[in-house]
Structures are given as structure tokens and as C-alpha cells.
Design a protein around this nucleic acid. Structure first.
Lengths: 232, 232
DNA sequence: GTTGCGCTGTGATGTATCTCACAGGGGGTT
DNA sequence: AACCCCCTGTGAGATACATCACAGCGCAAC
């Protein structure tokens, strides 16, 4: 392996939520089992139902995880950014991929193959424990989302989503907290399990009440307190 | 610690899905950090929202995981039996418990506390890897359930649930595959995110068509092929 | 420019479920 | 037995959404 390439990988490892906490001593070993790849925008990296023993660490860019129902309705499971991990379920349990993952920006990833990565974990149990913690948080999130979609109705779900997006990616402006991802109402619908029409009506109503502001495809949360109370 | 007690714990470890694969050499170390507890029927072991750094391995009996909406609607996340693990999310990430876990039979559990257990994992990375695989499968399941509840409607969801229950717990009889758990229609509703009335109507319809049979609170799947096709 | 396409906005209508209401029924307990 | 409690079974609304239908609008491609 080229030394330059390996340097590049080690730099990327330092930014990753799973690896940044471990002693740089181990980065070398890890860099040896990682493969770096550049992914063009709009490329699907893993496809639901396929088999694959690779796990990916997102170094640069953003991806979206989706699932498609037999009737063609799309469900968005979430967005990931630099430092995140994906593809870990199939890598770990050997089953088929559970979702599609598609680049929504030009991306750069590190790929780890099952055997090599598990071997690394055996040598660095602290990383394994970090990984466990990461999966636990993922589980916490999906459990919460599951609860929301079965127990709450649209306005509440939508409010929660917006708050989540804002706390994950949002940054403060004079007008409030702006969500810096361009989301069509279609996209929001597929995140909340609703149609774009329903999303449209709800967003407009909130805009009318001054809870949020809509401009050029971006959403800004104006009255965070009110939105929180709508989220219960 | 009493030697008898420790023997008892080591016996229980051999039956656990997370620990049975590891060399018995390590069972001693693990038994040292485990605490055995007997839980009476209908006792709530962990409560949603509380903090707690313990994880539990179910040795004997069955428990149900539930969550309650602010308006009082209950959602059942699943049933666990001997050999299963629960409480791992809060143990790992230190956050509040994500669900209630209640005994539906007299139970016996092993409790592991965070620090001691993580220390054990550091010494037995193979267990950590098993654990990762287990969490991955859990994620796979909840992702699937999430997809079902957002994308499919009741008949399909219900069919899937029945098939799952049958494959997890069911055993064959002359009449078909019987689910040996006593479930009220209320319970089934809270598993599928529906009201008991809707469940009732659907089950009755299927009974009329000869797809399932209902007797004394137990469900038997008569025409498995038909039910599968209803599940898409 | 004009064409086309994907997004927004909004009414009219349809429908899968929930809610409410009530009538049994079975199995404990007194 | 009589009582109670929890479960089942079913009808008649109410309702949160989806679906359909169509008009406008911004913007990239031609």
C-alpha cells in the first residue's frame, strides 16, 4: 500500500466517531484493513436485499438511507454525514442489507471487510466497546422512531423530525435555527411516513402561525418553544 | 461469593445466546460479575425513563417490553424468553431506559453492571463481537418493524406478526402451527399498533376464510401459505 | 425565448382505522 | 348462586389521512 494513501486514511480515521477516541497507535493497523473510495453524487453505495460483508465509514459528503415498499412508496430512515458509519448490520450478522444508502453529495468512504475488521476488534477491544455504544444509540433512535410512528400522529411526528434535524445539523441565524439541508416536501414526507400533500398543509399552517419559516427549500425554526410543545 | 451460587450462574451462562459460544474458561470470570435474581410474575424489572447501568440475561421465564404514549396507549415492542438479553441499551450508552420490561411469568435473571461487564468484554473480545452481532440483529428487526408500520396497513402487519410469532415460539399440531402464548386481542393490537376492535375484525375474517383458527385465546395458523401471501 | 420537469399549493373525495357504545360470556371470588 | 372483571364480538359514527386532480412557478435544457 502507498504510504501517502495510508496517511490519508489515518487522517480520516481521526475524524470518525467510532475511531477518533482510540490511541493513534492503533490507527496504523486499522489503516491497513481499510480501503478508501470516492463516490460520485447520487450513487447508490449499498442496495437493500443484496449481500455484502463491508462496512463503511463516511469521510466526506452526505448519504441518505432509504427503503422502498412493494407498492413503490419510499421511506427515508435517516441522513448521515462525515464521521458516521453505515452498512454495519449486514457486516456484523452476515444477513442481507437492510436499506439502500445513496450519496446526496460527492462522498468519500472507507470500506472495511468483515474478517479483517473483526480481527482488528479482537486486538482492540476498546474499539469494540465504542462500537457497542454506537449501536446502542442507533437502537435507541430507531426504537424511539418506531414508538413515534405507531403512537403519534402527523403533526407531532413532523415537529419531532424538524427538531431532530435542527439539533443534528441546524445552525442559528437571526431568524431562528436553520436546517441547512435542502429537503423537498416529498423528502420530509418519506421521513415521517406521510404524503407530501399532508406535509405541505402542515408546514404552511405552522408558517402562518409563525412557528417556522420556509425559504427556497430550506426550513427555519422560528419559535422553537412552540414547536417543542407541539411535539408533546 | 458462595460456590453453589456461582455454579448456578455458570450453568445459566451456558444457556445464554450471548455467552454459550465462549470457552467455559471465561465463565468463571463472568460469574464473578453477575448477580442472580428471582423475579415474581407481573413484576416490572426496568421502567422507561429511569436511569440504570444494569443489563439482564433472562435465565428462566418470559418478559414483555412495552412503551406507553402520553395519552395512555400502549405499544408492545416484543416478547423475550430464556437465553435473551435486555436492558443493554441503557447499560451501554448510559442513557435512560427506552422501554418497560415486565415479567409475564416467574423469572430468573442475571444482572451485570456496566463497569464490571465492560471490563470483562475488554478481556474477552470474542464476547464483545458476539454482542455486536446480537445488537446488529436487533437493529435489523426494529428497522424491519419500523418499515412495516410506516409502509403497510393493518392486515399485512398483522399477518407478519403472526408469522413471526409462529416462527419464534410456534410448534406444529395437526391443525397447523400453534402459537403457545396466550394473547388477548388487546395485546396483539398493541404489538401491531392497532386497536383491539380492528384486530378482532381482522382475525374473525381470517378465521371465517379458514386461514387461522382461534381457540381459548390461542391462535393456530391453518393455512400458512395464504397468510404469507397476505403478508406480501 | 419556449419547452419540459420537478416542486409547491390547495380543493374535493375516498377510506382505513379509531372511537364509542353496548351485548354477551367465561372464570374467579365471595 | 350471584357478582365482578376482563375478554370477545359487532354496529354506527367520526376522523386523520391518503388519493386524485389541477394550477402555478422556478429553472435548466434546447
Amino acid at each position: 500500500m502507498h504510504n501517502v494513501e495510508q496517511q490519508h486514511i489515518m487522517l480520516a480515521l481521526r475524524e470518525n466517531r467510532l475511531f477518533r477516541l482510540i490511541a493513534p497507535t492503533h490507527h496504523g493497523a486499522l489503516a491497513n484493513v481499510a480501503q478508501r473510495r470516492v463516490i460520485p453524487d447520487k450513487t447508490t453505495i449499498v442496495r437493500k436485499g443484496e449481500t455484502g460483508d463491508e462496512m463503511f465509514a463516511l469521510v466526506r459528503g452526505r448519504v441518505v438511507m432509504t427503503s422502498l415498499s412493494p407498492e413503490g412508496k419510499e421511506l427515508t430512515l435517516g441522513y448521515l454525514g462525515a464521521g458516521d458509519i453505515f452498512g454495519e448490520i449486514a457486516m456484523l450478522d452476515g444477513g442481507p442489507r437492510t436499506a439502500n444508502v445513496t450519496a446526496i453529495e460527492p462522498c468519500e468512504v472507507l470500506a472495511f471487510r468483515r474478517n479483517a475488521f473483526l480481527q482488528f476488534l479482537r486486538e482492540c477491544p476498546d474499539v469494540a466497546i465504542n462500537f457497542l455504544t454506537l449501536l446502542a444509540s442507533r437502537l435507541r433512535n430507531t426504537d424511539q422512531t418506531l414508538e413515534d410512528t405507531s403512537l403519534r400522529q402527523l403533526p407531532c411526528r413532523l415537529a419531532r423530525r424538524l427538531i431532530n434535524l435542527a439539533s443534528d445539523f441546524g445552525h442559528a441565524t437571526m431568524g431562528g435555527v436553520k436546517i441547512p439541508i435542502r429537503l423537498s416536501q416529498q423528502d420530509i414526507g418519506s421521513m415521517t411516513g406521510a404524503t407530501r400533500e399532508s406535509v405541505n398543509r402542515q408546514l404552511r399552517e405552522w408558517e402562518g402561525r409563525g412557528v417556522i419559516a420556509l425559504e427556497q427549500g430550506y426550513i427555519t425554526i422560528v419559535d422553537h418553544a412552540r414547536l417543542s410543545s407541539l411535539a408533546e
